[in-house]
């Protein structure tokens, strides 16, 4: 068997209208959670990883890794670029360095994607527990 396929990509974060409306319904709502734990990918890239729409994937950067759901981007073609909306999931992945101007780098971070069909996507509560352990 081959080693699991991995793909080197560039991670971009940003807003989507689903995230924008979802946040107004409440940060603990399913709508918000689902909207920000989704990773939009180019269909060609998904083919390379041999994954389908709505398969779980593990995205990793120098700063951390997190399981999210892959979704076919309706904005393709943008091979090599993955897009995850702003939210607690992508925060695990972004570069905190501000280069002395107060602003972390939230777009254009080198990342790696691999299929993770048997790893679960954490719920917001679980994610927060895992990341911060405050109780």
């Amino acid at each position: 068997m081959d080693k699991k396929p991995k793909l080197k990509v560039t991670l971009v974060t940003g807003r989507t209208i689903e995230q924008g409306a979802g946040k107004e319904y409440g940060k603990f709502s399913r709508k918000y959670g689902e909207s920000v734990s989704t990773c939009y990918m180019d269909p060609e890239d998904m083919k390379k990883l041999a994954i389908r729409d709505r398969t779980n994937i593990l995205v990793s950067t120098k700063y951390g890794s997190v399981v999210v759901k892959a979704a076919k981007s309706s904005r393709a073609p943008h091979p090599g670029i993955i897009y995850i909306p702003y939210g607690p999931w992508v925060n695990v992945l972004v570069d905190p360095e501000t280069n002395s101007i107060g602003m972390p780098t939230l777009k254009g971070i080198p990342a790696e994607v691999e299929p993770a069909p048997d790893k679960p996507i954490l719920s917001l509560e679980e994610l927060l527990k895992q990341q911060f352990r405050k109780d």
Binding site: N91, V94, P96, K134
Partner: peptide, 17 residues
């Protein structure tokens, strides 16, 4: 505002501690 949703994880960590 909701910084824990928006800050890099390393920054939020200190904030909530």
């Amino acid at each position: 505002s909701d910084p824990v949703s928006n800050f890099p994880h390393k920054a939020s960590e200190h904030l909530v501690q």
